[in-house]
């Protein structure tokens, strides 16, 4: 996979999405639904509610695709951020947050056997192993920030650690996630 190829494909896809081309939206849905639904269902439960949110998010993407700016990052990152921001807003506007706060971290660990993913062409089983190989403290920080939208100050309070440690642990965790992309 070369960078240029991906870029051309992505710009073509985005151009068709802006034109409200049905085939392009089907491609988008088929390829990203599992990734987006995975994130949503970690933030919003039960699964029926998470599916309603995926519907809202996809309609939001449909209406806002013009706002995607390729010079600022990849489409996948943008889709994930639209999804996360929508969920975080939803959690904050309801009492979901309190329930999530009380969830034990073990509950947040994905169930490897129960989930099937065919959308994005990377080895997700390998990825899942990688995520599970993170030190528990590192994983908790990433999960608190990524899935629950906590700020560094809130995470520092919840975990009872200094602010600087939050930053260095977040960095250590993401460095580990990046190792997958360092090998060709």
């Amino acid at each position: 996979m070369t960078v240029t190829e991906t870029y051309t494909e992505e710009t073509q896809l985005v151009a068709s999405l802006i034109k409200k081309d049905k085939a392009a939206f089907e491609y988008l849905y088929d390829n990203y639904k599992a990734a987006l639904f995975g994130v949503i269902s970690r933030m919003i439960q039960p699964d029926e509610a998470a599916e309603d949110v995926l519907q809202d998010v996809f309609i939001k993407i449909y209406h806002n695709i013009e706002k995607f700016d390729a010079s600022k990052g990849r489409l996948y990152t943008w889709l994930l951020n639209v999804t996360r921001n929508y969920c975080i807003d939803k959690i904050r506007s309801s009492d979901q947050k309190n329930q999530n706060k009380n969830r034990s971290i073990d509950y947040l660990v994905p169930d490897i056997n129960n989930q099937l993913f065919t959308g994005i062409s990377v080895d997700h089983i390998g990825l899942r192993k990688l995520v599970n190989s993170l030190v528990p403290e590192q994983r908790e920080i990433i999960e608190r920030m990524y899935f629950e939208g906590y700020t560094q100050t809130e995470v520092a309070e919840i975990m009872n650690i200094p602010l600087g440690t939050v930053k260095t642990r977040a960095r250590a965790a993401i460095l580990k996630l990046r190792t997958l992309f360092d090998t060709p």
Binding site: A35, F37, G38, P110, Q115, F117, T118, I142, F181
Partner: peptide, 16 residues
């Protein structure tokens, strides 16, 4: 870093 976070999201993928 963003690629790392994309991988993190992909690791949690689940079919609706």
């Amino acid at each position: 870093i963003l690629l790392g976070l994309e991988a993190f999201a992909t690791a949690h993928a689940k079919e609706p």
